[in-house]
Design a protein around this nucleic acid. Structure first.
Lengths: 286, 286
DNA sequence: TCAAAATGTGTAAATGTTACACAATATAAT
DNA sequence: ATTATATTGTGTAACATTTACACATTTTGA
């Protein structure tokens, strides 16, 4: 990873450590043995004791594992009217009538979860070149009224204006993230987790560009950051910062149909970014 | 989350954005439709067309989902002899003879994944007050020779010297993280992912204290950071930084049995940290 | 008593962040 | 055409943080 003798700027290190927080071991991360639900199946150590011969047969071991229905749920974010939006669908379930739920589906028998999430995206939006990243698993045994289902949450970012975007089903709607009160299943906490994840991520990685058109003005970029982070930023400092990163390409075009002086349009230079990324010594947010 | 009108220091924001990187949509996050494995089961949209009546019955819907064996795998880190260590076990499987694997077990029928991971920790180490956090799911259909198994990776940090730590099974051993070449299953990439996760995390959160004894010297703390990040840090600046955070409690004790001037010992003040955390406006790495 | 090894401490230079104001440019209304 | 309106585009000084760096002190062990 890093050579032991290589020095890095403490700056980066410090800036992060200064914001350090810790979840005390007795709080969020406490042992939950007391409240643990008991499984009928043998644990692996038990299995090894009771089936000393079987352990070498990995197929029969796997066959002995309990099996759980697995779904993926996609939190699909878009940016429109200076608001962060999320694509939701009217719940299929009677008990969640009038509630909205995330776009999800079960994982196929031999399907990688990333593939399943891409499949959901493709089926629902028609788009196939979309930012997608796994966030985390939600596994509360009572999270689904139809029985035990584990879901893996994915966060997706797309340009709501993209010409390929086709929301055909009329039960699909974009919702302003801040206006959503409750949802079907545990989808509200899942959305919250993905939103918090996004807020953190766009400060470390230039994910935000996935929400914008190919060409964008700095005002749009700033609006995006302000909307997602829920803060206001100084225009001059914002511009200074992004220009100093030197990944914006001036394409010598201007906004059109705005009732004021039009701003310049830029593209994000992925290639340059990728190259310069490798040069960075020091801490690397891989 | 944040009030729209509330201003935050751009400082924090900038420091992060300057290290922004982006995974181009055509690379790591490209659509994988072409390589997708086909599932025999109907997808949810298909199901809704072919079973318009059934959709309201959530139990039969869930029953129609494919079921997958789920495991948790714990990457248990410790710190000893100025090296980051990980607790591994000799593989149970003939085909992985002489290879090491992570500590894992399947998830019980109605067991939350966090509970399953805590259970593994308790069974293997005897400890129950341990830092544990989910990292992510690994779901490659061919990752397990015994058939399709999805695993959720957890990262755990514990004090290797803790009096409650009891490694009873003699097939368990601590390994220097940097010395591990290959492992059973896909456990090496899982370990790598958790190590990268940890490197990032200890710069944002004071997780590192979980690896140290209750009382520690600043030299130990610095050794910890240097070992995990693989870098060297300036001693004076390191001390200055941690003192300025003001979460270290001087307990007026000193190292013993060291062949040189003994250093002062400190504790980490969790409570003070928790309190001051709430005061922070601006970006919050929740 | 001395050598060895580590602890403990402060400051100046460099860098990064913040706060802030006014001219320039386009549209819309008159 | 002229003017009002709205927004873009730009620089600098004060402040805060980070970095680089050296020597006296304390203990052990020879």
């Amino acid at each position: 990873m890093f050579s032991k003798t290589e020095k890095i700027k403490l700056c980066t290190f410090y800036t992060f450590t200064q914001n350090i927080y810790l979840v005390p071991p007795n709080d969020r991360f406490r042992l939950k043995c007391d409240s643990m639900s008991k499984s009928k199946a043998l644990t692996l150590p038990e299995f090894r004791k009771t089936h000393p011969g079987l352990i070498k047969d990995h197929k029969s071991l796997v066959d002995s594992y309990p099996r759980v229905p697995i779904t993926v749920d996609c939190v699909i974010f878009g940016f429109d009217e200076n608001e962060l939006k999320v694509l939701l669908i009217k719940s299929d379930f009677e008990i969640y009538k009038d509630k909205w739920s995330l776009l999800g589906d079960f994982a196929g028998d031999n399907e990688d979860l990333d593939d399943a999430a891409y499949r959901v995206l493709k089926e629902r939006t028609g788009m196939n070149d979309v930012y997608l990243e796994q966030v985390r698993a939600f596994s509360n045994p009572t999270r689904h009224p139809g029985g035990r289902v584990i879901t893996i949450a994915y966060c997706s970012l797309l340009n709501i204006q993209h010409h390929k975007l086709k929301i055909t089903e009329n039960e699909l709607h974009w919702h302003s993230v801040n206006s959503i009160k409750d949802m079907a299943f545990d989808h509200k906490p899942i959305l919250d987790a993905c939103y918090a994840w996004l807020q953190k991520r766009i400060q470390e990685h230039p994910l935000g560009f996935n929400l914008l058109p190919d060409k964008f003005s700095l005002r749009e970029l700033q609006n995006l950051y302000e909307a997602i982070l829920g803060i206001q930023l100084d225009r001059r400092n914002f511009r200074k910062k992004f220009f100093s990163m030197d990944f914006l390409v001036d394409i010598d075009e201007y906004e059109q149909d705005v009732p004021h002086r039009p701003g310049k349009l830029y593209k994000f230079n992925f290639e340059k970014y990728e190259k310069s990324r490798r040069k960075w010594t020091g801490i690397d947010f891989a």
